[in-house]
Computed example of a mutant assay.
Amino acid sequence: MDALRTPEDRFENLADFAFKPNYISDLAGYEGLRAAYIDEGPVDADEVFLCLHGQPTWSFLYRKMIPVFVGSGGRVVAPDLLGFGRSDKPEDEEIYGFDFHRGFLISLIERLDLRNVTLVVQDWGGLLGLTLPIAPGVEERITRLIIMNTTLATGHPPSDGFMAWRAYSASRPDLPVGALMQRSTPHLSAEEAAAYDAPFPDARYKAGVRAFPKRVMTDPDMAGVDVSLAARTFWAEQWQGQSFMAWGAADPVFGLDIMNDMQQLIKDCPAPLIIRDGGHFLQEWGTEIAEAALKSFEAGVSARR
């Protein structure tokens, strides 16, 4: 498989992101592709926070949440999906399918033997991550959920805003990632916007960026619909863990109607934290969200005592 690797000097002096990258090149089913992930906090921590990014971001998106989770005594694992961040980037857009990325996450969870996992998801991190509990051997590993603007794609367009985003993305094969992030999150600094550009020296590195909007399952025959439908049943009927939801009310792609559907779907999901000026990339308001999630979980535990 032909893949590009972003030069390491592109990641020097990142704003507020001094976390050490970890690499794995022999992941089962993905041999020869080097994947990167952040792994902070005690390896033997009682709780693991698995933080999954979407398109066109990478683990840098979680820089405001990681210290809060580590400060609570937890371990934080934040992978860069293949095609993003420090991970290798296959050049063929056809490779970037639902099963390719879902299989990668399952293999990584098993390889790192992650247990007592708090699943933290947004965007494609949710489209993929919310299906993980129905994978054999994974369900018992996931005990809590933090969900931000995302959905389960089950064969129909999630919103007019998403369809507009898909068309916009398709018209820009060299999508200016940093500029997009700054428009979506106006409080980003120039240095932070540059960090979102760092993985992509030029358009050749953006096969994943181009492919992901096309892969959202808007047609019943698309790969991943059956798994996502089964996942809806799981979250509605079988889920036994704690949940916390945060909504970015200013998100034009996965807006309040979608998030209300997800809140109603997830069994015993409490009322959400609504960030009124929060956009699609809600982790940029991450300190407040992470702190609120931990308080909610602790309150839930106390209520059961």
Rank of each mutant, 00 (worst) to 15 (best):
V225P: 00
R183Y: 05
A167D: 14
H156K: 14
M163H: 01
L175V: 12
A230G: 14
S169P: 09
S189P: 07
L175G: 11
D221C: 00
A198C: 05
G178E: 00
D221P: 04
P157W: 10
A164E: 13
A193H: 04
L175A: 13
K206T: 09
R183T: 10
W165Q: 05
G178Q: 00
A193I: 11
K214Y: 09
A203N: 04
R210Y: 08
M222I: 11
A195Y: 02
A179L: 02
A194V: 04
M217F: 02
R204Q: 01
A179N: 01
V216F: 08
F212D: 10
A231M: 06
E191H: 12
K214E: 14
M222Q: 15
Q182V: 10
R210Q: 10
W165P: 00
S189G: 14
T154V: 15
A167C: 12
A223N: 08
M217H: 05
V177D: 00
V216A: 10
D174N: 14
P157L: 13
D174Q: 03
A211N: 08
V216D: 02
T218F: 05
F162P: 01
F162W: 06
P186T: 04
E191K: 14
V225M: 04
V225S: 01
T218S: 12
G155Y: 03
P157A: 14
A194T: 05
R172Q: 15
A198R: 02
L180D: 00
M222L: 11
V209W: 06
A231T: 13
D197C: 10
P213G: 11
H156G: 10
V216G: 05
A170G: 15
A230Y: 01
R166K: 15
D197A: 07
A203C: 02
F212S: 10
L188C: 09
S159L: 09
G161D: 03
V225G: 01
D219H: 15
K206D: 09
K206P: 09
D197N: 13
L180V: 11
Y168Q: 12
A211R: 07
S169T: 15
P201A: 08
P157T: 14
Y168C: 04
M181C: 01
T218N: 13
T218C: 15
A179K: 07
S159K: 13
P186E: 03
V227G: 08
V216Q: 06
A195R: 02
T185H: 01
R172K: 15
A207K: 06
S159Y: 04
P158S: 06
Y168T: 11
D219F: 08
Y168S: 12
D219G: 09
